[in-house]
Simulated scan of single mutants.
Amino acid sequence: MAKKLISAVVVVAAATMATSAVATSSMSFNLRAHVPVTCGVQHNPAGTGFAGNTVNLGQLREYCNAPNGYQLEVRYSPNSLRGVRLNFGNESVMLDGSGFATIPGAVGPKIQTRPLSAQLGDGGFDAQELQVAAIAN
């Protein structure tokens, strides 16, 4: 009886070791992550003021993780700001009064801070609001 019990224990132990060895060598693990595209603009009014016909409007902190980059969309009241040149660092756009303009942002994911200024046209700065948004390409 003792021999049968010892034999049964050896068989169970051998089966357990074989099963754990097989399970360890055949296991796999798959991990997937989804990162949503996030773009935004934050305005910092530090440094605002007039210098001749140029209005310093502070700084824009732009961020976007889109693989193909982003552009900035500017919205303002239609029939206003005609002839005003908006400067975003080294980029600029002449506003035509349509209420909409675009500025290049970046060709890939980026975080950057750029000074924002406006060179006044004949009509001056005749809008109460200027909206800037970062839009993924």
Rank of each mutant, 00 (worst) to 15 (best):
K110L: 08
G83C: 06
P115Q: 09
N53L: 08
Y70M: 00
S28V: 10
S92L: 09
F50C: 10
M27D: 11
F29M: 14
I111L: 11
E129T: 14
E129Q: 14
G124D: 02
T38R: 15
Q119I: 15
V74Q: 02
I135T: 06
Q71G: 11
Q119R: 13
A21D: 12
A14Y: 06
A51K: 08
G40R: 01
D96P: 08
I103V: 14
R32G: 10
V74T: 07
V107N: 13
E62P: 03
V9C: 15
I6V: 14
V84A: 01
P67F: 08
S92P: 06
L31Y: 10
L95G: 01
N65L: 02
G124H: 03
V9H: 11
G83P: 06
N44Y: 12
A106M: 02
P104A: 05
N90I: 09
N65G: 00
T48S: 11
G108H: 09
L31V: 12
S80V: 04
G83Y: 03
Q112C: 07
T54R: 09
S26F: 11
G40P: 06
G83N: 04
A66K: 00
N44F: 13
T16P: 08
S117Y: 04
G49F: 06
I6A: 14
L95P: 04
Q131S: 12
A13W: 11
E62Y: 05
L116P: 02
V107T: 13
G58Y: 04
C39W: 00
A21W: 15
S28L: 07
Y76F: 09
A46F: 11
S26D: 09
P67H: 05
A106H: 05
D122C: 09
Q119C: 10
A136P: 03
L57K: 00
A127F: 10
Q71Y: 12
A136M: 00
S117G: 03
S77Y: 08
G49P: 03
S92E: 06
R85K: 12
V11Y: 08
V9W: 11
F50L: 15
T48E: 11
G40T: 03
V74Y: 08
A23C: 11
V132G: 01
T102V: 14
V35S: 13
F88K: 00
Q42D: 14
H43S: 05
S28K: 06
A2I: 12
P36M: 03
A66T: 01
A136I: 00
